[in-house]
Design a protein around this nucleic acid. Structure first.
Lengths: 200, 200
DNA sequence: ACAAAAATGGCAGACACTGTCATTCTCGCA
DNA sequence: TGCGAGAATGACAGTGTCTGCCATTTTTGT
């Protein structure tokens, strides 16, 4: 039993997932999400439907699967930010990093955001993902809070949820309103409207 | 063509919906959401599956259908709150009213919240509903903002999204953690952790 | 009591997704 | 080069949600 091939197989598995996701996204943007069946995707990729479902857990996963570990990325950014920065600021900065990545994605990222925002099914799947991001980010924020232990997790979670909600609002505006400008200023405006708790 | 019967029919239609939702909830709490088929619900109500789907749009609707117009309720509370109160405070107070209603629901409401929070499918449906609440509440908040017109809608929406996110966090804690106490204090703590923007 | 209108049920079918099993493909090794 | 173990694939049947269609029953207004 060799382990040599294992890494390669995993990599190929990831690559196949990527191909499926890519082709699927093309079809979704072209004909719409609900109007595209999994059969269509399978045919476009050149495999059977059964095989498609061996690589992605669901139709939704073809769209939201790529953004799996983003919560951990943001948590890392917060954990490695200077200790002098306040939790709220560190959190906002971390999420801003993600916003920057999104903005760098160009029109493809915007189109995907529009698809996500305009398809109820996908909005639900995205909310699912965001819940996981919350779970990943919350400990990093909680670690910096000075609240008593009982309230710390609640406060941290509320902050994370609120900032992610701001991100959502900003992304929605950025994705649809052509004249709204760049994403990060929109996000900053949203965050400032919600407000930094005094001194935290 | 009389209109006399129309109101009665609508009322009965709503009543049937209520019965379906009630029986469905009983089964869901008993055996779990995914383990209960729509056939089971139909059999429990005593009608055909086809008829069930004439009253509810989907299986999820049996759970989240009842909380349809809550956004409008909250918007009303904000619109009728004294003009002296700041937008953020009015918003928080409005949502707090809903939290109070939830808390009055007793164990049934808590059990439903737990079911909602622990079933991915239902979390998605709830996120859908919350989006609509956002759309309903946002104008009421925007009306009280003094921002320039361009930013007003964005700021209002961010505030609404953030406060609803806090509500979500508080409800999740309240639903699962038996020792966490009453819902409204939890919600207040969450909102204070996020913070009131200076003077808005 | 009768005709129009509405509610209901059953059937076929689309679509997402799963379990199972036979077939094929790929590798490491002799 | 050929062989055998293990992985990948495809085909098929089946479940569950949800919809369109049509026949049947029930309700309603006159």
């Amino acid at each position: 039993m060799t382990e040599i091939g294992a890494g390669i197989r995993d990599a190929q598995r990831g690559a196949v997932r990527g191909v499926i996701a890519q082709r699927a996204m093309e079809l979704f943007l072209e004909r719409g999400y609900e109007e595209t069946t999994v059969d269509d995707v399978a045919a476009a990729v050149g495999v059977s439907v059964r095989t498609v479902f061996r690589y992605v857990a669901s139709k939704e996963e073809m769209v939201v699967g790529a953004m799996g570990d983003l919560g951990l990325d943001i948590a890392d950014r917060i954990a490695t930010s200077p200790l002098s920065s306040r939790p709220w600021a560190a959190l906002v900065a971390g999420v801003e990093g993600f916003a920057h990545d999104l903005e760098s994605g160009g029109d493809a990222a915007r189109a995907r955001s529009r698809l996500l925002a305009s398809t109820p099914q996908l909005r639900g799947a995205l909310a699912e993902k965001r819940q996981r991001w919350q779970d990943d980010i919350t400990p990093a924020v909680a670690q910096r809070l000075e609240e008593p232990a009982r309230e710390r997790e609640l406060c941290a979670r509320a902050m994370v949820a609120a900032v992610l909600a701001c991100l959502d609002v900003a992304v929605a505006r950025w994705a649809f309103d052509a004249h709204s400008g760049r994403l990060i200023p929109l996000f900053r405006t949203a965050v400032e409207a919600v407000g930094d708790p005094s001194g935290k």
